[in-house]
Simulated scan of single mutants.
Amino acid sequence: MRNSREQTAQTRERIVETAARLYRERGINGIGVADLMSEAGLTHGGFYKHFESKEALIAEACTEALQATRAELRRKVDQANDADALAALVHSYLSKVHSDHPGHGCAIAAMGAEAIRDDGLGKVAMAEGVDELLALIRQQLTRKGSDDVDAKAHGILAALIGGLLLSRTMSSGNKAKAVLRDTSAFILKAI
């Protein structure tokens, strides 16, 4: 019995991880349940053993993706001193690697536009993720000794997401790098 529960939990986690990656790569509406399950190495029919609906999976996938982004950013800021922590966060978020690999990047930048059109659990998960990223940015501003951290955190997060999205739309790698570099410089100069 225990082994079966462990296998069920592992299978569910595999589905969530696969969905988190694919939704960021292709969009929420860019992949159906059958293709998603196939990518996870499972059959379509097994989906409803693990989830009540596609909406429930979307919410879990958003949460999973956002937690992964925060964990990576947290790792970067924890390695930095108080004066450099915010710069470490900005440079990590606006990196070429992050820009080039949306399937392993920030869910807000990859799926935010779709999530805001949804009135269900996906939108709730996305809103919670935004709040948690804002809290992480506020912490770094506080570490740096900044004032007006709420307003600055809002501006920083908006610039981070916008810079990342814009870099992904550039027609050449050099233009993408320039957007990332210039957005980083703009944010760090503004604070």
Rank of each mutant, 00 (worst) to 15 (best):
D147H: 10
N29S: 12
K152E: 04
E114Q: 15
T18H: 03
S146P: 03
H44M: 00
S53N: 04
G27A: 10
A153T: 07
M126N: 01
L22K: 12
E6T: 15
I58E: 11
D182Q: 12
L160A: 03
R117S: 11
A19Q: 07
L133H: 10
A85F: 11
H91V: 09
G120D: 07
F51D: 05
K54I: 01
A65N: 03
I108R: 06
S167W: 05
D118Y: 00
A68V: 10
R168E: 02
G46H: 03
T183Y: 02
T183W: 08
L134K: 03
I187V: 06
D150P: 07
K123V: 01
K152H: 10
A107Y: 04
D35A: 13
M37I: 02
N174H: 11
M170K: 07
G155Q: 06
R12Q: 14
A113T: 07
A80D: 03
T69V: 14
T43W: 02
N29L: 11
D150S: 10
H91S: 10
A176R: 15
A71G: 09
E55Q: 15
D118C: 09
H91N: 13
A20F: 08
D35S: 12
Y48G: 05
A88K: 02
A40P: 03
G45E: 09
D100A: 13
E72C: 02
D84R: 04
I187G: 07
Q7W: 11
A109T: 11
T18F: 05
M1H: 09
A135W: 00
V149F: 06
L141C: 05
R143T: 00
L188G: 06
A56H: 06
K49A: 11
D147Y: 08
S172A: 09
K152C: 00
I15N: 03
M37R: 01
A110D: 01
K177Q: 15
S167E: 06
K49F: 04
F186M: 15
M111G: 00
R138Y: 13
N81Y: 02
I58Y: 05
E6N: 13
G46I: 00
A20E: 04
K49I: 12
Y93M: 00
D35W: 04
E114S: 12
V16K: 10
P102L: 03
